[in-house]
Design a protein around this nucleic acid. Sequence first.
RNA 1: GGGCCUGUAGCUCAGUUGGUUAGAGCAGAGCGCUCAUAACGCUUUGGUCGCAGGUUCGAGUCCUGCCGGGCCUACCA
Length: 539
Amino acid sequence: MQRHLITSAIPYINGVKHLGNLIGSQLPADLYARYQRARGNEVLFLCATDEHGTPAELAAAKANQDISEYCEEMHAVQAQLADGFRLSFDHFGRSSSQENHKLTQHFAGQLEAAGLIKEVIETQIYSHVDRRYLPDRYIEGTCPACGFEDARGDQCDNCTKQLDPTDLINPRSSISGATELEQRETKHLYLCQSNMRDNLENWIESKTDWPVLTTSIAKKWLHDGDGLQDRGITRDLDWGIPVKKGNSPWPGMEDKVFYVWFDAPIEYIACAQEWVNAGIHTLSFPATILGSGEPWKLVDYIKSFNYLNYDGGQFSTSRGRGVFMDDALKILPADYWRWWLLSHAPESSDSEFTWDNFQSSINKDLADVLGNFVSRVTKFCRSKFGEEIPSGGDYGQAEGSLIDNLASQVKCYEKYMEKIEIRKAASELRAIWALGNEYLQSSAPWSVYKEDEGTAAAQIRLALNLIRIYAVLSQPFIPTTSEKLMLAMDCDDWSWPENVLEATNTLIAGAKFTVPEMLFQKISDEECENWRSQFSGTR
RNA sequence: GGGCCUGUAGCUCAGUUGGUUAGAGCAGAGCGCUCAUAACGCUUUGGUCGCAGGUUCGAGUCCUGCCGGGCCUACCA
């Protein structure tokens, strides 16, 4: 038995995520976690919300809420949506947890002891009216280069010039519009990533099996310009993890908190402690971890994704364009979305969601190929033999070759799942479903029944067993449907079909089953039309 | 501006270290079946593999340039 610790990028607390976010992180992780569990391996699948930072504070203020209340509420919302999509987290934590406070402070202390932290005096903009320091992008003003009046402190949206907030003419707070801004010198901690460069490079070079997308970005950062830059890891904010060296105070850093990018990834580990309060082997953030000098387990594999586009453009959180997780569940069950998203995962390049494609995929794959298979088998059996697994007859040559084919396709499916080649795994699974229809067509129990009831019974017995096997194999993709199938077969044996011949004899003659309700309702043209216009923008 | 990824049948995508007639699903066409959500099965029509050169006995698969899509990043590789 293997042990797997699986996480995905942790979603920011601010707002409901769209389907592009979902397929880019949590959903593939869930697929893999479910698969590994199904194979009998020990899995700890963790996720959490990333809760610190200015955007969250401002969202809370806008909602007229205390920041901690806001986060608590939004965490509950996200947890509920995750549940709705059947994301099988063993724990869904929060980067604001006490465990993360402790662990983040611990890492900072270790890094300091290792000589990897330095103090830097930097200049930040303080707004008296807002009574807070403002990040660059929350300062607006006139661009010195092109005269654009709404340039942001980090970049001018008009001429794309990179800016410092101090470059702006007539700078103002984008929150309050206040112009009483003051440049203040403030002391912050920096992580000396540059000292870690060789260490990191060796580690990344060793990861030859990672996607190019993952390593090329890392290498770029390592080699570009002056190489890896040291980065500030603290901020002057109220909401966050207080700066400490382990349990001890950090002189001169009172009233400061760690910067969100430092504490958020540590939550990968901390949320495991929220779950199992013990030392664990886990993964995380290389510079921090390597630098700690402690024997933390580093991540083995990182799967990265491209983007899912929406109907000719991009999903947009700010413009409310595309389908968001909450709306998605309001119009269709989770399995519909899971199937489409996973079978079209943007693995090698961007992929695109269109309603036409969605409609035809769902109707064909789920309703026709899988749903109708279950329907024709169970209804035929009910009408000829009643609602129990029929007895009589034996498997013959046709059944033998079906079982052989199924066995080799299951192996193929396993191979893709192991390698996390999601689209290929999905198409293999679909081919396995189709195998059932091919078998029925060629064995034609409805004709055989007229001459030889026993043989027809054996054929249907096999087909009913296929339904159970499909439930097991399909569970990582469409868990709710799998449960319905199992329930219909009145069975609770989720064992993986290691031996397909055995697996086709799991449901034995005489056992009861029921004809399930229609598994998948087809999507009509009208529905598609309505949704297309409903989700075209600004929800 | 730089770096990286990408452009294959109407649509969504596969194409291993360059090697015989470029594949799948959907859509289209034909045939078959009738148990089933007018579902299923079989057969089949579609591609000068973005464009132009080059290397090679041979390139979708390597090199150069151009055009298009995307990502990362920035007074610099």
